[in-house]
Design a protein around this nucleic acid. Structure first.
Lengths: 205, 205
DNA sequence: AGTGAGATCAATCAAATGATGGAAACAATC
DNA sequence: GATTGTTTCCATCATTTGATTGATCTCACT
């Protein structure tokens, strides 16, 4: 499955990759049950059977999307970890917030799909959530919340969950919160970052 | 619509109320598109047409559910506001976290449905979100983040959103996070409260 | 030009789903 | 007990939706 996904990503113009990209966006907007295979096919402007030819059943495509966003998130976290290594904590927080927020605001499907998976039952078993625990532990270690990378205490994990979710919330909630606050996109992102820094700097420095 | 809803709530054993209760739970678990009218009817052990007789189309029932949880949330917020009035800030935060967390952990559909509405498109217009802005302003005022109840600055609203969402996240995410952290329910709730207090006390005292 | 593997589409299926009409059961009133 | 209004269920519809089949199309290779 992963190899099939990697193959698709190698050539972003390939039909398989184009379908995956559209599926990411639409699954992210409407969720698993809110998305129909026809909606995706229409977005790519292909027949529905072409979609099935490339990805098989809807659930498999959805899993591929989840793998894809998880992979992207993992890459980004590694990148950020390198950027902040060795710096003082306050700086680490500022950089991490800036980088993660920029990345997720540019790819809101990631936040959408992540929260979707956290919060809703799918009426369709999908059992691939190995990644999240690693992420959490890695971030906890990287933030100095644990000395042992492999054995992170529960309260540290809870804090990391809280932080990650807070970012996802602002990204995914933009369509709802921004009109409510009467802000343009740029200001909204700025305010979101400020708020995230406010809580994290207060808590950890 | 609201009067119809109130009438239904007056007698919790009435068919209309029983349907509403089941609908709350199931919409909360599976979301709008993930829920079928048949699932709700089955939960109440009635024929599907009985459901339609009482509530009309699916979208109307969903809206009634949203109104219902909003009303409950509003009541609870008023109650909490009374409890904390006049106390020092740290105490206010502790009490508010305890109370809201207990309330939402006891009624997780509220958090589920709230987050659902924030984060996902419904492929079906429903335009009743007046309540949220008031809530936010009220809480901001009540936390001393604004001197003017009617004119709360954006950054204060963002902080309140962050706080409310953090609670919702732990409640709605329980099914995902708790197995991951290998905690029993009681411990999980305790850890969630601790984490929420940690961030809020750090930030505001 | 002919061949064949892979890609695409039109047409279609079966099941699920939202919704309804009308008959029956029930309850209150006279 | 008949009458009337309400509630419930059975049967059924029309659409949507996930999925497949078989026929075409494309194009590299000969």
């Amino acid at each position: 499955m992963t190899s099939s996904l990697e193959k698709a990503k190698q050539n972003p113009d390939s039909m398989k990759a184009r379908i995956l990209t559209a599926a990411r966006r639409i699954f992210g907007e409407y969720g698993f049950h809110g998305t129909t295979t026809r909606m995706i096919a229409k977005a790519v402007d292909i027949d529905i059977s072409t979609l099935y030819y490339h990805w098989g059943e809807k659930g498999d495509l959805y899993e591929a999307v989840i793998c894809d966003i998880n992979e992207g998130l993992r890459q980004k976290l590694i990148e950020v970890e390198k950027m902040i290594k060795g710096r003082p904590l306050a700086e680490r927080i500022e950089i991490a917030v800036e980088e993660m927020a920029d990345y997720l605001f540019a790819n809101p499907e990631i936040s959408n799909l992540t929260l979707f998976r956290y919060f809703t039952k799918t009426r369709h078993k999908s059992l691939l959530d190995f990644r999240v625990p690693e992420f959490i532990s890695d971030i906890a270690y990287s933030m100095g919340l644990s000395t042992d990378r492999k054995n992170v205490p529960v309260d540290a994990k809870m804090k990391v969950l809280s932080i990650m979710n807070a970012i996802h919330n602002f990204v995914s909630g933009e369509n709802f919160f921004r009109p409510m606050l009467k802000l343009d996109r740029e200001s909204y992102i700025k305010e979101a970052k400020e708020t995230l820094k406010f809580f994290n700097l207060s808590a950890f420095t």
